[in-house]
Design a protein around this nucleic acid. Structure first.
Lengths: 216, 216, 216, 216
DNA sequence: TATGAATGAGTCTTCATTCAT
DNA sequence: AATGAATGAAGACTCATTCAT
């Protein structure tokens, strides 16, 4: 087997193992991505494993070499999206910023997720196709984000940068507005996704700083 | 549909064409309602005709006596909801009111729809299960509402009661917030649906009157 | 719907229900029988539901209208056979007879079972295709027969009509000899199944009365 | 199969044609053994090539390096068992002994086979999974043993050491009793396999010498 | 009107087997 | 000699829908 740029000095066995694993993971992610695209486009039940395989120019059993079931596909897509968001969130943890800015930061990232291949599935595909356990896990993760937002809002009330009547309803409203975006946003439209996210955000930023305007 | 001309001696009331038709319609509506409840609860694909039949204590072919296909069921539910809204809308057409009030009026009704049995399906169930024609019709109806809202907003800009940066995005945001409600609202919770609707509305009313507040 | 020999006086509705149920049961039993024949002939895994359906000139889903799964098919065949045997057994319960005669009676019936359509599956088809619970139930039923036989042998030792060294091994030997019969017995051969059963029985009757011969 | 003519400098022992062949055969036999164990334990169809590979800590294609198909696996197991028995049989061919003793000798060996890894498959696994040709070959081999036994019995009638009514039925009964043994015998039980074999044998020895006892 | 029975058309999933290295 | 990856072929099971009464 001729190794790509000739065999590295030592550890080449390990390297090849690593590369294999890497390749494997890469392919698996490709499958998830393609599945996510199709699910988002046609729906979960309207997409067959065959179609996913075909879109990737492989055979159906190949898909099953990388995943265990169609359900796992959906779960992993959602989970990956949520995990990515979590990671992005924890990366720029600007704890020092005013709550309103952290609010904006959160939904900028959330918006990017929800308009990404993986995120769309979160907003568009019902988790009713999942088994109770997977559904519970996913919902718990989502709940976490709700809690995060509510905390930010609470903190905003204290640091005087956010003012809303009912944090719970407000939170749901923002999530709703963002989750609805995949239904109408088209990357082929005039605005970029970042523009759309900013615009949506602006609406809620206004509300949140409504009562404060007077003081300034 | 003209039934056979004559009626049997007695029971002719039962069998009178009108009542028959009435009965027929009533039963059909019962089926739609039960289907809507189940669809909203479990999802379209996760609900079988058998389950709908069982919930109504009839047999599966009975369902097919009243509807042509599962798809029609979904279409009719959505269509009925939309038509009901349209009717309600046209009923109190307070053309004289300020735009912001008409805006509020619209979403109060829309909210009631979306939290009703029939409306939930609109927000929760994807129309991807419908054939292209039905989907087109339904989308066209929904679009109509978007247009209505945009018009109200435009008028609000003129009568000085509404001020938003981007009417399109704003419209989508409001619809998103309302469409998301069925995901979290529970009639068993502390707030009534009307309360929730009012709360959601309040958020967007604030935004819409933001720029104006200063002037007044 | 023209009832067979014209409608009976009253209860004809109930009668028709009964007849339906009867028909349903009859058809179900036909399916079991056909499945049993095919399983015995080709093996469980070598028989597809399609083949069973085809043999009955119905479509595959029709089979599923009467049974829940292929596994249930196998379980029900085995269970029915065992239950039939049990019933036959309890029917002529000649408790007064000498043990050796009851022994003969038992294996005459067992032989008839094991050479019948349903019984063949018991001897020929492994229960490993069943889920643990079904397997356990079936094994428990079979065990019951072993116990019955051992008890008869024990009683035979007391009433002086049976004499064997090791009742356990002896029991297994007899069951083995009978269970093996479906492997070689052909209804097209020269001996009838009853003849074969009698012949097999004769062998073990000899053994059982070996030590006693002297006394007589 | 003549391997490439020359050997590498060192390690030539390892790579010597003979040892290579030996190793190859040894590994092949290991595979057969493991497969036999799993087939006997779970059944043929319930065992996947992957499970066999896993049990041997190798990969699936490795199995295929040594065998051509799963079917061959089963055939070879059965064939090996039968061949081993044949060999053992021809080894101590005590043609001079009384038939009854040769009868005992035969089934002692047969019993050992049937309770060995390879033999269990003969009794437990249906040959229906084999192609017609393999099945025919195997059945022919088994038939050979039946014939052998019948001949012994015939000779027993002549040398006055065996007396049975129907040699055919008797033969089937004995085989049945022995073939059934793997179903209930457990090496973890109180009796050794040799004990069980002796016990089973004793039963049939009694029958065979029944009529003779009186005369002596 | 209503229903027990029947079915066509899939879809997921599995598994023995092969390919390429 | 060994293996990660890939696939053809098949089978169980489901479900919307229709038939016959």
């Amino acid at each position: 087997m001729s190794k790509k740029p000739a065999g590295r000095k030592r550890h080449n066995i390990w390297e090849s193992t690593d590369l294999r694993q890497e390749q494997h993971d890469a392919k698996r992610r490709l499958i998830l991505k393609q599945a996510a695209i199709l699910f988002a486009d046609r729906g979960f039940h309207e997409t067959t494993i065959d179609q996913i395989a075909e879109a990737l120019h492989v055979s159906k059993p190949t898909i099953y070499y990388y995943i265990d079931s169609k359900e796992e596909l959906l779960y992993d897509i959602a989970h990956t999206g949520l995990a990515d968001l979590n990671e992005a969130l924890s990366r720029d943890q600007n704890a020092g910023l005013p709550a309103i800015d952290r609010f904006a930061q959160f939904f900028t990232m959330y918006g990017r997720l929800i308009l990404s291949e993986f995120g769309v599935c979160l907003a568009l595909i019902s988790d009713r196709s999942l088994n109770p356990q997977s559904r519970r896990r996913l919902r718990s993760l989502k709940k976490q984000f709700e809690i995060t937002v509510r905390k930010i809002i609470d903190e905003g009330r204290q640091d005087g940068t956010i003012c809303v009547d009912d944090p719970k309803i407000f939170t749901f409203a923002v999530f709703g507005a963002f989750n609805w975006a995949p239904q109408w946003f088209s990357s082929k439209g005039s605005s970029s996704s970042d523009q759309v996210i900013a615009d949506l955000l602006e609406i809620f930023r206004k509300v949140a700083s409504q009562g404060l305007a007077v003081r300034q």
